[in-house]
Design a protein around this nucleic acid. Structure first.
Length: 218
DNA sequence: AAGTAGCC
DNA sequence: TGAG
């Protein structure tokens, strides 16, 4: 079992943290210590709640394929964006969030200054070449005092980290396998997104990027 | 508008 | 032509 402390202890010597702004930081390679259990856990989740392309309220298909773990899952359809305890594709609850995920999320949040993070929602995003996520705010959660923890696995992506207004020009942040971004406090409502991915290959994951986003939704 | 098209 |  990889404990929260172990995540920090193993990965600390080789890492370099990069502040994006007050309340937001990139923890380079933070997720590398627990890599193998993470990959198995993702396969288990996808077996119970397969990846699917959600539809926006405007009726358009998102290029990112998504699934969820935890007591609440983020979904989108013609009725809007929301968290729901039931997978609409199966009628069953989302799979539980694996302990290794929760330990990683808590360790990363604590490292960024947000102690005691207990997420109830884990959104699992799958990107392939060409997949993008346009600039948006995470604003469907009840308590904006809780941070967001975002884990990158697989092929690299260019993360966009903007301001509190959509018109603010975003920073471009290259993210690689194992990088973790944490934002909260004054940065909690910053706009963010992902540029279209370039075709690429990762030894462990193949031609995809998996992003785990941890949130306290309720 | 968590999307896309269209235009510069 | 294509990134923005």
């Amino acid at each position: 079992m990889i404990t929260a402390d172990l995540f920090a202890a193993i990965s600390a010597p080789a890492r370099r943290d990069e502040a994006l702004c007050e309340g937001a930081v990139v923890l380079r390679g933070f997720a590398l210590a627990g890599e193998t259990p993470l990959l198995q856990a993702i396969a288990d989740i996808a077996a119970q709640a397969p990846f699917r392309h959600l539809v926006t309220p405007g009726g358009l298909r998102m290029s990112v394929a998504m699934t969820n773990a935890g007591s609440l899952g983020w979904i989108s359809d013609r009725r809007g964006y929301r968290y729901d305890p039931i997978d609409p594709d199966s009628g069953r609850p989302w799979p539980p969030t694996p302990p290794a995920f929760l330990q990683l999320a808590d360790a990363a949040a604590a490292h960024a200054g947000f102690a005691g993070f207990v997420p109830d929602a884990c959104l699992v995003n799958r990107y392939e070449a060409g997949t993008r996520l346009s600039l948006h705010q995470d604003r469907d959660e009840r308590d904006m005092g809780e941070p967001i923890v975002s884990v990158s696995l697989g092929i690299p992506a260019m993360f966009l980290f903007g301001g509190l207004q959509r018109s603010d020009r975003p920073q471009r942040v290259p993210l690689a396998h194992g990088d973790v971004v944490v934002w909260g406090g004054p940065a909690r409502l910053r706009y963010h997104g992902v540029l279209p991915l370039k075709p690429n290959h990762h030894a462990a994951l193949g031609d995809v990027r998996i992003n785990l986003t941890f949130r306290r939704a309720d």
